[in-house]
Computed example of a mutant assay.
Amino acid sequence: MRMLIKRLVSTHNISFVRLSALRFSSSDAQKKPEEAAKGEDKPDDIKKNIVVEKYGGITTINIDRQKTRNSLDEDTLREMEVAIDAFDKDDEAKVLVFNGEGGSFCSGFDMDEMGTKGYNTLKDAARRLLRRPLCDKPTIAAVKGFAVAEGFELALACDLRVIEDTAVLGCSGRRFGVPSSLFGGRRLTSLIGLSQALDLLMTGRLISGVEANQKGLAAKVTATGTALGESIKLAKSLVKFPQSALMMDKLAAVNSQLNPNSDESMRDEAIMQSLLGTALEDIKEGVKKFQDGIGKHGKFYKLTEVPLQDWELENSVEETVVKLGDDEKAPDGKAPK
């Protein structure tokens, strides 16, 4: 799949940078006694459970624990926290895409490690995923295979979800008495309503990608094997917009559903105010573009000087054909002007 994305990206002139793709054996991850005493890690001593990649302004975090269907252990959760914080601080990074390597998105907390270290250890390691919204910048989940338990909640935490039709989603932790750990109940209810959310939360019933789309969870439902590619395509469509106004509107929407009258709501209001200065500059530039004829008549393509490819224009150009019945034609048999 990654090779296909590389071809897609190279075809459309997006720079590609791999940030972390090294794998280390568990024996290499052991600290030397003197290093452990100092509390310092060398890069080569850290076992990587995620792969971070960049495609221009798009960053992907790929969970790579395929033997356990990309379950989340303590190390993986802490690596994700570092990667998300780095994305937040990167001015060049605009959209974050979560993906699972192999055939699944994420199967939730690692149950074996939960048995060893306890639920609270994993919950504490996942504290960065509790933020609402997960990031101020746009986030997308490329959902395939299993997205269950906390993996389902991770997908719900993202702003948009591209879901394969054969994906399996749901609150599978119900079987083992594990509650929603990442505000899954609140997020699910805000997305699909109380009645449907209770059905999934209380029964633990698993649903397909098709049903998830019918319930309104998917920004797009797609064929098996295409979630990551479609997510990159969707992310690229977001990168082209001025980002300050986009983030302000996103935060306003999230506040209305997830953070009413809360400390996080106040934090987001402060962020929106800080974004307003940049948004005003974007507005000035937008007005000038409109006056020059860019973006008129509802066009969402050719908003920048960067030429778009045919595959981008496929979903951008829409034609409406109006057919008139015989009773709507003029007496001379011609359509009225």
Rank of each mutant, 00 (worst) to 15 (best):
L238H: 06
T166Y: 11
T139F: 15
A142Y: 13
Q214H: 04
S237H: 11
L160N: 04
F183V: 02
C158G: 03
L200H: 15
L194H: 10
G177P: 04
D199P: 02
T189Y: 12
A149V: 08
I232Y: 08
C158N: 12
Q196Y: 04
D165S: 12
T224F: 12
I192C: 02
P138M: 11
A149R: 06
Q214D: 09
R186Q: 10
V239S: 07
F152T: 08
R186L: 13
K215H: 11
I207D: 10
D199G: 06
K137F: 00
S181F: 10
T166C: 10
R205K: 12
L154D: 07
A141I: 02
S190E: 10
E230H: 02
T224R: 14
L156N: 11
A142E: 08
S231C: 05
L198I: 04
V239G: 01
V162C: 03
P242H: 02
A227G: 02
V143A: 00
R161F: 01
I192G: 01
F146L: 14
I192Y: 02
G216C: 15
V178W: 04
K236Q: 03
Q214A: 09
F152S: 06
R161K: 12
I140F: 04
G151K: 03
R186K: 08
S237G: 09
T224D: 12
R175V: 10
K220G: 07
S231D: 05
F152V: 07
A235M: 03
L234W: 02
F146E: 06
G209N: 05
F146S: 15
